[in-house]
Design a protein around this nucleic acid. Sequence first.
DNA 1: ACATAAATTTGACGTAAATCAAATAATCAC
DNA 2: GTGATTATTTGATTTACGTCAAATTTATGT
Lengths: 191, 191
Amino acid sequence: MNPYIKRIKDLSNHLDSQVRTELEGGFVDKKFSKGSYLLRPGQVCTSHFLVRKGILRKFYKHNDKEITSEIYFHDDVAISLDSYIMQKPADVFIEALTELEITVIDYRRFDTVKRKYAEVMMLDKMFIEYYATWFEQRLKEFQTMNASQRYLNLLEKEPRIVQLLPVTIIASYLNISLETLSRIRSKLASR
Amino acid sequence: MNPYIKRIKDLSNHLDSQVRTELEGGFVDKKFSKGSYLLRPGQVCTSHFLVRKGILRKFYKHNDKEITSEIYFHDDVAISLDSYIMQKPADVFIEALTELEITVIDYRRFDTVKRKYAEVMMLDKMFIEYYATWFEQRLKEFQTMNASQRYLNLLEKEPRIVQLLPVTIIASYLNISLETLSRIRSKLASR
DNA sequence: ACATAAATTTGACGTAAATCAAATAATCAC
DNA sequence: GTGATTATTTGATTTACGTCAAATTTATGT
């Protein structure tokens, strides 16, 4: 596990039980079937989606092409950040790639608890700090790596994505075409 | 001004004067000469640099090529986020592109004030939220725009960068070669 | 098992943008 | 001003990757 995520987990495990109860009071468990959307463009993102079981992705459309921006597994939190923080309409889809079990954390309730307990605010801030550095890292990958380097990097850093998802989605996450991905793979296999 | 930045400014203008005094007690004004470095790889980023006057940039080296990741003007805050939040060695340079007047906000003092006043913690969180969405937006630009679209976009969204900085830096911020930028410009001028 | 559809691979070709090299143009020192 | 750096433009060539089209493989339903 990433050291930063570890720090966040450690802290959240040491929350006062009173705080924890109050926080978890706002949690609602939900199930979604494969292919359903948890968020669509135009809707306001009013919650965090904490993944208990299954896989989902966030993507947006550009010239009819789907670009996958994030992929979430167990214990990840799916959210449209700009929609959530400004409570404005989203421009992304969040889609269930498998049968899904999710804990929904409502914006308003979470906000209330954050305002009441500094340590919860702190945890939320750390979550976003992590998110920002993740984006910075990913941007750097696009600025410095070509298609095959990005694929090898993904294989190393996020092997589950390569193992569990169809080529269409892997390619759109790497921002390369299906055909190019296929060629990269066959070249690697032949060696 | 970006609506999110506006929200942050509004809030910071309404800080209790006691809080404000305590916060600003940790501010130190400094001057840097053109070409000097405020941060180098290997150093830990122990402060925010608030720009009072001048221009600076953050960049990293990749295969001996310099890639400019951010450019800061009056009222912007320069920081190496991952170095700052983990207090670990940075992998970027922060460089003065002009004569500079900076307000240095020390990590430890700022941290102390944040822990004491929830509204300061809140402001810091909002700063990072903005930063995260900025990165997300910039990533999207690289995923959806070609070289000339990125140039036109920069011209529209950050005209000062195009107006005030040498071609080398503009190109490295757009992640294209000098020559390509020059061709894009001459093509635009001829129409 | 078979047919039909969907996913993936392979091939041919075009193009945006990098690279290398040389030519101007602008800036600076004295 | 004159020469010497430094910045910018222009030209020729290469290349990674996209696009379009067809072939093959894999999955799905009946």
